[in-house]
Design a protein around this nucleic acid. Structure first.
Lengths: 179, 179
DNA sequence: AGTTTACTTCAAAATGAATTGAACTAAAGG
DNA sequence: CCTTTAGTTCAATTCATTTTGAAGTAAACT
């Protein structure tokens, strides 16, 4: 088997194959797109890459396809697919051809974004909120204006925290429009 | 010097001292708050911790104060402060007492958040946009409905990308209200 | 001029996260 | 049943990022 190995500039990942190079280019671009997003969203790059390669295929991909196109180990593919299945980003479809599992994108992006907002942002804002309560309790009651300064700072954080909380549902609604 | 060493549960950082423990508690909570946020925003934890300890003090802190309270190396303090000065999160104030530099929080949080939105989110959305253009160019023109499937997927990403772009200014405005 | 104090630099060490791959399980095919 | 194919698991490795600390610079005292 002839194996041209191409380095994807941005993702640092590798796509292999002797397949038509427009396809490789397209896949590369798609993988890079999701890998970039992954950095932002705090998801492991390999997981994003797997999602990208699945998203870039019009037909469901097998485990082996993914392994070959990204040139990553079986172990990584297995773990990556597990994560993606768990969050519902990818689903298994049965194939008549052989007994290999095949994967295609499942959730709409909207739902994934929404889930991200829920899990990462909302949760974070919430634990931030309780930390702030904790802070209010431990506010040093020193003399001078010092205590006042610190109280003001905590208040500032609380204001910010609730604004962010208020923004979340707005963002959700906004992203929902139009689909 | 008696040195009680306390482990901060969430940040994994350490605060040392024989100082009144309410103050330590308060500082710990503040440092944890910012360290949590740092994870979300993709800033190194030690940098966030330094900002936190500075934010938790009603009076400007010296280099040595920071080093001692967080129990981190001089090198880390130096680098962390450099980053914070560069982004304007912290500023140097002169002290009459001695020739040590002192630091206090500079930018309002609002500006820091705004700067984050600009730099990380806006930039990301923009490079995502150009990747998408690239993808359109390399869309494989295979027969069947396959090409159509892929075109639809790219379109979906574009829609999402522009929605997010549109959301940014809204978020900015919203966060600005009330200050 | 020499010493101390205050900080910076950067190569090396530590840490932590992602990745590999070999051993394993399970189901299908013969 | 025995073999093959398909995928999982997890200890060990690799890789990237952070952190350290020792050596260096520079300004302020004396």
């Amino acid at each position: 088997m002839t194996t041209a190995t191409l380095i994807t500039p941005a993702s640092g990942l590798v796509l292999t194959g002797g397949r038509p190079s427009e396809v490789a280019d397209f896949e590369r671009a798609m993988v890079d797109f999701f890998v970039d997003a992954a950095d932002l969203l705090g998801v492991p790059r390999s997981v994003a890459a797997i999602y990208g390669i699945v998203f870039a295929s019009a037909v469901p991909l097998s485990f082996a396809d993914i392994e070959a196109r990204l040139d990553i180990s079986k172990g990584s593919v297995s773990q990556g697919l597990r994560v993606l299945r768990e969050v519902g980003a990818v689903k298994e479809v049965s194939s008549q051809e052989d007994r290999a599992e095949r994967f295609e994108p499942d959730l709409e992006l909207r739902k994934m974004v929404q889930r991200f907002l829920e899990n990462r942002l909302a949760k974070q804002l919430q634990t931030g909120g309780s930390r702030l309560e904790q802070m209010v309790k431990t506010l040093p009651k020193g003399r001078h204006g010092e205590a006042a300064v610190l109280r003001a700072r905590v208040k500032q954080l609380q204001t910010w925290n609730s604004k962010a909380q208020a923004l979340l549902p707005i963002a959700k609604t906004f992203l929902k429009l139009g689909g």
